[in-house]
């Protein structure tokens, strides 16, 4: 099995603060991992480290076959990160934003239109500057960038936050599609009942590392079991 992410006692610093204090984590290609945990547990830092944005200063960190401790820039083009702050230019429209992001990676722009359609961004919305969009629309646009780029590793930081029911359903199907096409997905969430059903596996982070791992649950019954197990453990998941 190919590993998309392989971390061993990985430490990453945010300034002088150990955002990751020794993460052990493996994510296989085609696997969906949900990362739960309270604020400040290191979820966002984990995603940013996977994307090669935050340097890993000790331990092992290999993402998509690239050793991040040697060169963390190589992997960037191949991962897709949906961050808290969508990477959109306020003055550009949805269409222009997605087109720029796709062209920047050197890909063709033929997938831009379908990607916007997929996220329900059609008609006038495409021509609206990002500054005038709602938070949900901005997130949809940011997701459209990922869809158009088709990364090998999806890193979704709280993909459900600020989205309506319709968009949440889209997120769910996007995750499934990505996984079935062989990409790995790591998503964080504060809402276990939304994240766990999507995941093959659940990791609970605390204190900058993975404190707990569970096989996850696609499907209602499995989800229920994991949620119950996690609550019995008295693990702080949200």
């Amino acid at each position: 099995m190919d590993l998309a992410v392989h971390f061993r006692t990985a430490v990453a610093l945010a300034g002088r603060f150990p955002a990751l204090s020794g993460v052990d984590l493996d994510v296989a290609a085609g696997e969906v991992l949900a990362v739960l945990g309270p604020n400040g547990a290191g979820k966002t830092s984990l995603l940013r480290a996977c994307a090669g944005l935050v340097p890993v200063t000790s331990g092992e960190a290999v993402v998509l076959g690239c050793d991040l401790r040697k060169d963390r820039t190589l992997v960037r083009r191949r991962v897709g990160l949906l961050g808290h702050a969508p990477s959109l230019y306020d003055e550009l429209t949805a269409l222009e934003n997605v087109r720029f992001a796709v062209r920047a990676t050197g890909a063709g722009t033929d997938r831009v239109g379908p990607a916007l359609d997929r996220l329900g961004l059609a008609g006038r919305l495409r021509r609206t500057p990002a500054a005038r969009m709602s938070a949900g629309q901005r997130r949809r646009t940011a997701l459209a960038v990922l869809v158009a780029r088709g990364p090998e590793l999806w890193l979704l930081d709280e993909p459900h936050a600020g989205l309506d029911a319709d968009a949440r359903a889209i997120v769910g199907s996007l995750v499934e599609e990505a996984a079935s096409s062989g990409a790995a997905v790591v998503l964080t969430s504060h809402e276990p009942d939304l994240a766990v059903p999507l995941a093959d596996r659940v990791a609970v982070m605390s204190g900058g590392r993975v404190a707990e791992e569970r096989a996850g649950g696609r499907g209602a019954a499995a989800t229920e079991r994991v949620l119950v197990a996690l609550s019995q453990d008295d693990v702080d998941v949200a």
Binding site: R76, S87, Y89, A101
Partner: peptide, 11 residues
Amino acid sequence: EGTRDGLRLSG
């Protein structure tokens, strides 16, 4: 933060 990361991630 978003756009700065975006530019770096685009490769």
